[in-house]
Simulated scan of single mutants.
Amino acid sequence: MSRPIAGTLGERYLRNRGVTALTDLLALRFHAECRWRADARSPPEARPAMIAAVTDLAGRLTGVQRSWLDPQGFSETTFGKAPIEPARKAMGELYGHAVRFGAPGEVMAVGEGVETVLSLRSALPALSMAAALSAANLAAMFIPETVRRLYIAQDKDPAGERAAMTLAERVAERGVEAIILAPRYGDFNDDLLLHGVEDLRNALRRQLFSRDATRLLTPAR
């Protein structure tokens, strides 16, 4: 029942979060009347939601994340998410899998939330990326065999820092170079919203491997 995200409240939500990387979003869709309930005893409510497909390394769908959105749009209180708790729920087989953007090559980036990863991709549009959806799953994420250098977008909290370090140590054991990217504020979406994409590019330039900085830091489309 979901449809492509282009032209929907889901796309407006991402734009309001500062995201400019709005191409190659096959992993994201929009559901105008996605069921939400506070708990198993509550009656279901129909609410608009962004649907993120969780896939394994072979591209097989293993789960979905539903992010319910506020039809009234962006506010400094909700940042566009529906004023309900929880505003996000995931279902299916999530362990080690991710929401994926772009085909992986020798270099890719990973992070926790969809908004965080798409914020990073707004500054690095040519780089394939994946969102683990949680700190615990970031630490356990399966990385494609093609990857030789992995950028890990760390959330600035104890759980995020531990997850980034755990993943870096795991992939290093198989010879993958891991580089942890640290945001200035809570996460890279905070950085993007507060200072814009050009400032984010400049901050990333100092953290990327030099050849990657030259190759990847092209203007956003």
Rank of each mutant, 00 (worst) to 15 (best):
residue 172 A to D: 06
residue 194 L to E: 10
residue 158 P to L: 06
residue 48 P to S: 07
residue 121 R to V: 07
residue 96 G to W: 02
residue 94 L to P: 10
residue 90 A to S: 15
residue 211 R to N: 11
residue 161 E to K: 14
residue 86 P to R: 10
residue 114 V to F: 01
residue 75 S to D: 11
residue 74 F to I: 08
residue 91 M to E: 13
residue 16 N to Q: 14
residue 4 P to E: 02
residue 133 L to H: 08
residue 6 A to M: 10
residue 71 P to W: 00
residue 161 E to P: 06
residue 217 L to Q: 00
residue 204 L to Q: 07
residue 57 L to N: 13
residue 90 A to T: 12
residue 182 A to T: 14
residue 119 S to G: 03
residue 105 G to L: 05
residue 105 G to R: 05
residue 60 R to K: 15
residue 142 F to G: 12
residue 39 D to G: 04
residue 73 G to L: 01
residue 19 V to R: 02
residue 136 A to V: 11
residue 22 L to A: 00
residue 32 A to E: 14
residue 208 L to K: 04
residue 48 P to V: 08
residue 26 L to M: 11
residue 36 W to I: 02
residue 160 G to C: 10
residue 219 P to V: 07
residue 42 S to K: 13
residue 157 D to I: 03
residue 34 C to Q: 15
residue 167 L to G: 08
residue 18 G to F: 00
residue 99 V to F: 09
residue 75 S to G: 05
residue 107 V to M: 07
residue 126 A to G: 13
residue 9 L to R: 02
residue 20 T to E: 10
residue 189 N to F: 02
residue 177 E to A: 15
residue 68 W to G: 00
residue 45 E to W: 12
residue 110 V to G: 06
residue 179 I to C: 13
residue 164 A to E: 05
residue 40 A to T: 12
residue 180 I to M: 11
residue 74 F to C: 07
residue 212 D to I: 07
residue 200 L to S: 05
residue 119 S to N: 02
residue 65 Q to Y: 09
residue 101 F to D: 03
residue 65 Q to N: 12
residue 28 L to N: 00
residue 128 S to P: 15
residue 217 L to A: 02
residue 2 S to W: 10
residue 166 T to L: 13
residue 191 D to P: 02
residue 214 T to A: 15
residue 8 T to M: 00
residue 90 A to G: 13
residue 151 Y to P: 08
residue 93 E to H: 13
residue 219 P to C: 04
residue 213 A to G: 05
residue 81 K to N: 10
residue 37 R to D: 07
residue 187 D to Y: 03
residue 2 S to T: 07
residue 183 P to Q: 01
residue 171 V to F: 02
residue 21 A to W: 07
residue 12 R to P: 06
residue 62 T to G: 08
residue 6 A to R: 10
residue 6 A to P: 04
residue 135 A to L: 06
residue 160 G to R: 07
residue 150 L to R: 08
residue 60 R to D: 14
residue 55 T to R: 15
residue 137 N to Y: 11
residue 84 I to E: 08
residue 104 P to R: 01
residue 135 A to N: 10
residue 70 D to F: 01
residue 10 G to M: 01
residue 171 V to A: 04
residue 69 L to G: 01
residue 127 L to R: 08
residue 207 Q to T: 08
residue 100 R to L: 08
residue 198 E to F: 09
residue 152 I to K: 03
residue 137 N to I: 07
residue 82 A to M: 11
residue 1 M to H: 14
residue 50 M to G: 01
residue 34 C to S: 14
